[in-house]
């Protein structure tokens, strides 16, 4: 019965875009749709696929993230706590390590990032190395969500982190090679795929409800935002380093020629 309800709800979710597309096509542009049968099959697949995904999300992705959060913060798993003392943030080192590994590995394996980085390498004419770019994005993402988990442990306001990151992004945008800026902003969106978003959200909410003194509402969100911001910083940072190395290299060559 649960499944049927999900199918019904997703039908309502895709109804707006279907109405918009066909409405503009037939009422404004007034031309028939090319290959209508194929298009209709496509929409049917979108409907079934979205429903299956949402069912799987509730049954697998959310529980997985929550399970890891509760196990890694369980009192029998953490180091012994001396009587009457507060838990130190360092005690949660497995949480940080888990967040880092998760962020780095999912980003390195992300298919759309592979495509983007190869394209970027071609456009840059060799100054950008596709593999190094992927590593930069993965490091940024991993750092972002690790910092996110640390923030939840500390209970510090999210906007301190966001403001600092914004400041870095703005300064870097003004100083980076022009051509890298669009790519850098794009890479922020690439890291948060439809599969990783639910797991990260569940991890954050799970941590916030498991760690004493934190509430999911006040502390649980924000990991996605950090996961999107830090790749922008790391990609522009990589571009600046690559440019600096490039100029140094060409300078050294000039010296040799003399």
């Amino acid at each position: 019965m649960n499944y049927l309800a999900t199918f019904w709800r997703t039908l309502l979710d895709i109804l707006p875009i279907v109405t918009i597309i066909f409405g503009f096509q037939y009422l404004v542009i007034r031309k028939p749709v090319k290959r209508l049968a194929q298009v209709l099959i496509g929409f049917l697949m979108v409907w079934v696929g979205l429903s299956l995904f949402l069912v799987g999300l509730e049954q697998a992705l959310f529980p997985m993230g929550e399970l890891m959060a509760s196990q890694l913060t369980a009192s029998q798993f953490l180091p012994e706590l001396a009587e009457g003392t507060q838990r130190h943030w360092r005690d949660y080192y497995w949480v940080y390590l888990f967040a880092f590994t998760m962020g780095a590995s999912t980003t390195l394996a992300e298919p759309s990032l592979v495509a983007v980085s190869i394209k970027a390498g071609e456009i840059s004419g060799g100054t950008i190395n596709p593999l190094m770019l992927r590593i930069a994005v993965a490091l940024g993402m991993a750092l972002g969500i690790t910092l996110g988990t640390w923030r939840i442990v500390m209970g510090w306001p999210l906007h301190w982190f966001i403001f600092t990151a914004y400041l870095l992004v703005i300064v870097q945008t003004l100083r980076s090679p022009r051509s890298i800026v669009p790519l850098a902003f794009d890479s922020g969106g690439v890291t948060t795929s439809t599969i990783t978003v639910p797991i990260i959200v569940a991890l954050g909410l799970g941590l916030a409800s498991a760690i004493p003194g934190r509430s999911p509402l006040m502390d649980g969100f924000g990991m996605i935002a950090l996961a999107c911001l830090f790749p922008i910083i790391s990609v522009m940072g990589y571009a600046q380093i690559a440019q600096w190395l490039g100029t140094r290299y060409s300078l050294a060559n000039k010296h040799k020629q003399r």
């Binding site: 298009v39 697949m45 979108v46 409907w47 696929g49």
Partner: peptide, 10 residues
């Protein structure tokens, strides 16, 4: 299914 359906239709 979702992504392929998007590529075919939308």
């Amino acid at each position: 299914l979702f992504i392929k359906g998007l590529a075919l239709g939308l």
